[in-house]
Nucleic acid binder design. Structure first.
Lengths: 341, 341
DNA sequence: TTGAAAGCGTTACCAT
DNA sequence: ATGGTAACGCTTTCAA
């Protein structure tokens, strides 16, 4: 049973399609009487305008695209929440794609969004795309968007899009400083993916803080975790067993924290007695476990909302200067940073 | 700069639009030579067919809709992951809406999906809609879908859609039995939302197990948690302070567990020495904390995939009998169920 | 205040 | 094997 069309409504209400259209969009002149008549018919026939037809005719859709690297990572779920809320509030519709950190899936998602002619795109790239030919391919794809694009969480150098991201340098710095203040004299780090700017940046922040504190980061105290739980687990465990460890670590994100904590447990290291840490990103329900867990709050939901706001701002004034919103994290002390004698 | 259209391609390649269309869809006859020529032009012009135009013309979209109650609840994130994976694999596109457990937002989401003329809908309702007028409104909306609908996680009685859900009765039963086996002689429950079938069902499972074990559930041992963290926290704390408590509890979902654990901590009750439990749903990263956490694994990602598979099955054979897939949870013993002397 | 008709970018039918 | 053309459901312009 076909859905009612504007033609059906027009016929039943004995008016022209144009009039029905005006009623739908509350645009142009329609006498109150006609309006009511039309509305009644629409209700009777359960009329819902076809988004596809509207998009085609208006040459603009009501869809906002969101591409993110991992749907089921709590960090991105919170971002999704922020984006989804605002999309809803403004009466848009959300098209979601997950790249699972894979550039080819990232590109596929981009192509799908182009096909949808999305009204705006919030994009968390799977990679930094600093190397050819990927970067060129990305540019070609991004050029196809005739709508605003906001980069979220991961900036893309050499592209000038509005961007909302954390202050990663400062974050790394704050985390390391917290450990220093707690009295640690040797500090290590579970580094994020060195292929990602945000990974290097956090590491740089740590480096800088340690240098300033006169205890430069040693190469052997950098555990390459790549923002991956398993890799972090393996490397951290290896490092623990090797001995001669720092007393405190900076962890680069929530997945690093998972891996690190598993490794610590396996190595029978107590937190913070045997090994202390400060991590980027909270863990769902961390408060409960009695586990001390000091972290940098990156306001994920708020960042999602900010990205959408930036998108809407640009939608309204396309010529405004490019925006880069850099959100400084908040340090939340929960005891895991402590130095035990 | 407009996106290229099929007309542009046709002109540049000096062929008819129909031919270009055949190339796009690999349908009908096109000589290899022409095909190549057309493909070359499409690549040169970065051609991406307009999804809206295709939808309109084919009278069918490539979009799958997903409506869920809470985007940022880990349980639903995992479901989202399963759905999103399959949508991707089959070359569809995902439209996501979150109702935040609010029927009016639920309805709004449904209307949006109708407008999109989605090809299929995976629907986790915000409510059971057992009462009028809501149920009637829901029916009117659902009737507008000319595509398959699969109910996920929460069944809707009086509607005969394909359904994928947990075996909640059995889950409640298993959880309570686990406590009984562990030696508990008095068992309570943090009940889910009594307005939801799944909430009542889990409670019934617990009741049944306890009755069979000759220690019927007492009214005062039912803590009304409503699947809400805050409510559970408050009620559980109240109950703990009141004293004369069961030694073990069944918790109805992950949010109940959060609230319960916070309350236990606040009341200085140790797990499982002072109070034991078995909960529905895992917690992200629970393994890490050294917190014993016995739970029922409900295979969320798999359920998401199963829902999509059911959807595709129905898409392929619309006349097959209605399917109800009831997934029994797995009990994962992690020590929180233990009875300490 | 209203309606006829053109156009949006495809697909599919029908000729050729 | 190919192309012209009429849909598809809506918006928008223009005339009335």
């Amino acid at each position: 049973m076909r859905n009612a069309t504007i033609g059906d409504i027009a016929r039943e209400a004995a008016v022209g399609k144009a009039t029905v259209s005006r009623v739908i969009n509350s645009s142009g002149y329609v006498s109150e009487e006609t309006r009511r008549k039309v509305v009644r018919v629409m209700e009777r026939l359960n009329y819902h305008p076809s988004a596809a037809a509207q998009t085609l005719s208006r040459q603009a859709s009501d869809t906002i695209g969101l591409i993110l690297p991992e749907v089921s990572n709590q960090f991105f779920s919170e971002i999704l929440k922020g984006v989804s809320e605002m999309v809803d509030e403004r009466g848009y519709t959300l098209m979601l794609s997950s790249s699972e950190n894979d550039p080819s899936r990232d590109f596929r998602a981009l192509r799908a969004m182009i096909g949808q002619r999305v009204r705006g795109l919030v994009y968390i790239p799977a990679s930094d795309y600093t190397e050819e030919p990927l970067r060129g391919q990305l540019r070609r794809l991004l050029d196809q968007f005739s709508c605003p694009i906001v980069l979220l969480d991961r900036p893309l150098e050499a592209f000038s899009f509005d961007t909302v991201m954390s202050d990663n340098l400062k974050g790394g710095y704050m985390a390391a400083r917290a450990l220093v203040r707690a009295g640690h004299r040797r500090i290590g780090v579970v580094a994020g993916d060195p292929d990602l700017f945000i990974g290097r940046e956090r590491l740089n922040g740590v480096r800088q803080a340690l240098r300033e504190s006169g205890m430069p980061l040693r190469e052997e105290d950098i555990i390459p975790g790549k923002f991956d739980e398993r890799i972090t687990f393996e490397r951290a465990l290896e490092r623990f067993r090797q001995g001669d460890c720092p007393t405190g670590f900076v962890l680069s994100n929530n997945l690093s924290a998972f891996g690190f904590l598993r490794a610590a447990e396996k190595a029978k290291l107590r937190i913070p007695e045997d090994v202390a840490f400060v991590s980027f990103d909270k863990l769902a329900g961390q408060e409960l476990y009695g586990l001390p867990y000091t972290y940098l709050d990156r306001h994920e939901t708020s960042q999602g909302r900010q990205a959408m706001q930036a998108l809407f701002r640009r939608l309204e004034s396309p010529d405004r200067p490019v925006e880069r919103i850099v959100d400084p994290p908040d340090l939340v002390l929960k005891g895991s940073e402590r130095r035990m004698p």
